[in-house]
Simulated assay, not measured.
Amino acid sequence: MDSGPQENHHKNENASKTDSDTQSDLNDLRSISFSSTSSTEEELMVKAGWLRKKSTHLIKRWQWRYFVLKDHVLFYYNNDSDQQPRATINFNQITVDINVINPESPEELIIKPLGSPRVFRLKGNTAGEIKEWVEALKKHIKTSEGFKEQKYMVTIKKEFWRYPRISNDRFEEIVQTGDILLFRSKAIPAKMQRAVTGSKYDHVALLLKLQDDQVALLESTSQTGVQVLLWADFMRYQWHLLYTRLVYRKLNIERTDQFLEKTAEFIQEVSGKKYRLAKAIFKKSKGLDPGSEEGYFCSELVASAYKKLKLIEEKVHPSRVWPGNFSTEKPVELTGCSLGPEVLIDFELGFEE
């Protein structure tokens, strides 16, 4: 049921494969090596704690939420143990106004994003507590890109706060081998798949960072079977427009030489194998060694790669893993690592400094 990619990928002859000059570089997968470096963010004072937030529902009430202020971004969560934030306000991407809204109730404050009717009303236990938050917020805001120039491209979007988001440039910079890309397709069959599996996503791919810092996808689709696809080609043919959402999840693990060698070995073993879905629905897993399966559907391929790297619990069979199991909804059990929050790739954003 990888209906998004099978319906949408490779819709013309030129897009049926990567360009000949890049394809020749990928023919001998034994030669693939990966970059293990990553960039670092500018650090500011981190502040975290519980505050009450005024709900925007029909019945408005104050609800406790756990807030984290870090690197020009304010997150809040339902619980302090949650991985996925309920809301994200990135001061590098939007312009905000912040002030105490009621002199008679100084334990309250409001955050008002430019270009949006949405406001965030917060309340601390005391005026002193909320004053500390205001001072911390102002430091992050005044050193942000949104303070230097007015930004409202994000805030005009529906529920802009629901996902952390990054630009395509930033995505290409921070990707590391083993990270995950989730797809939500516009195609009707993909919508049917999401309904059947109870997931927000209908396709998943394993991300690779090649030695020349190019980003690539290891994926399985009905059109191509298992292949390595350069992200530059994905963008060149504008396949990103076929999806309502492309979501990045970082794999939190050390990229050792062994990790990268095992990944390259797995790619060599599976490249060119067939796309198969029936196995996952109608047949039980036979406990095959990762990489030795005859064919794969998308999430089975990624799960098999993770099993090769010993990142998935032994009891988990790759053939029983769906795209949604790589989201925060119904996460697959991992060992010795974790996946970061779902981050939306926003192709209308410029590069974030």
Rank of each mutant, 00 (worst) to 15 (best):
S327T: 10
V302I: 14
H240D: 13
T221S: 15
I130V: 12
T40E: 10
R121E: 00
K60C: 03
N8P: 11
K209D: 05
K191D: 03
V302Q: 08
T244G: 13
A48K: 15
Q268N: 13
L339Y: 06
R52Q: 04
D233G: 12
V228K: 04
L181Y: 00
A216F: 04
Y237W: 15
F34L: 08
A278T: 13
N168S: 11
K186Q: 03
G146H: 04
E132N: 11
K308G: 07
D2E: 13
G291E: 03
W62A: 01
I253H: 10
I281T: 14
E108H: 09
L26S: 01
T22W: 07
R61F: 06
D2V: 07
D19A: 08
S116R: 03
K60A: 02
S39G: 03
D28Q: 04
T177H: 12
P5D: 08
E254W: 13
G324Q: 01
K286Y: 08
P318K: 03
K262A: 05
M45H: 09
E145L: 11
R194N: 05
L51P: 05
V46L: 06
M45Q: 08
P318Q: 02
G287M: 11
V46S: 05
L29T: 10
L311Y: 12
V270S: 03
A195I: 05
Y163F: 15
S144T: 09
D25S: 07
L349N: 02
L109G: 00
E329V: 09
G115F: 10
F67D: 02
E42M: 09
E43D: 08
